[in-house]
Design a protein around this nucleic acid. Structure first.
Lengths: 134, 134
DNA sequence: GTAAATTTAAACACTTTTCCTTAACCCCAC
DNA sequence: GTGGGGTTAAGGAAAAGTGTTTAAATTTAC
């Protein structure tokens, strides 16, 4: 069975990239076009993101649904909602207001525009007060 | 683009499994055969392994395995172990004792409980003495 | 501004993965 | 032995992923 997510081609490109070579230089070395090197590199990075998200999902397995941030909600209103819901469940959220907001935006930048939630975000919490977003 | 590696079907099965349901029970719920549930679960676990291996590769891109902090180890004992192993490799760890401990806990909070390591942690080091945990 | 580096899009052939069924097999408790 | 839980194998259809080219567009550097 295959091991990592990355193909040999993708690893090859990442290794050369790590050494500081340009896509053009790599293209010559591996005998293809620079556009192709770009595509391969992009796919590699995409795969790495997917790997991270996959492991992230594992954490949500021990977590329970806490609440939903509905589309249109002011992001700054999210923390108080989350704290209230966590209290109802007798759980203490691990993050203060600021880091909670940062964590929300970092985890899912495309789901927010400025201060506004663009798309429903499901909030999960585990016993340690860690939060996950789905 | 898809996010995680796991398909909806695979996540579904893992969630039910986490709840303690048998493959047979899940098969009835999602209207398929237990053999299929087994296959899906197996594929899910396979994907999780692949996700882990993928991130593992990233570390090896510029780092080498240094040592393992075994489950049960006192977190305060970790630095001296790490320094010793680094010295064997002729590398100087970039962090002092205090920041090393903080870095360990910050990087993987769920792997520690108080001063104790809850789960094996792999330590990687690169030429700059940077440490990575997997 | 120009040239190099990078990114994107569309299209194609090819391979791999998924989900599914059916049928058989293993292990263990009773 | 029987039954429950789990696994494996073979086969098939649909979906997704990969490497590629070509051409155009965008960003970055000097």
């Amino acid at each position: 069975m295959k091991q990592g997510l990355l193909t040999d081609r993708q690893k090859e490109v990442l290794r050369y990239r790590k050494k500081g070579l340009t896509q053009q230089q790599i293209a010559e070395i591996i005998h293809t076009s620079k556009a192709n090197v770009c595509t391969i590199e992009k796919a590699a990075l995409e795969n790495i993101s997917r790997a991270r998200e996959t492991l992230e999902f594992l954490y949500t397995l021990d977590a329970v649904h806490l609440c939903t941030l509905q589309s249109g909600l002011d992001l700054l209103k999210a923390p108080e909602l989350i704290y209230a819901e966590a209290e109802k469940k007798g759980l203490k959220v691990k993050y203060d207001t600021i880091s909670l907001i940062n964590r929300l935006r970092d985890a899912n930048p495309e789901r927010f525009r400025g201060r506004q939630v663009r798309e429903d975000v499901e909030i999960y919490i585990n016993k340690d007060g860690d939060l996950y977003f789905g």
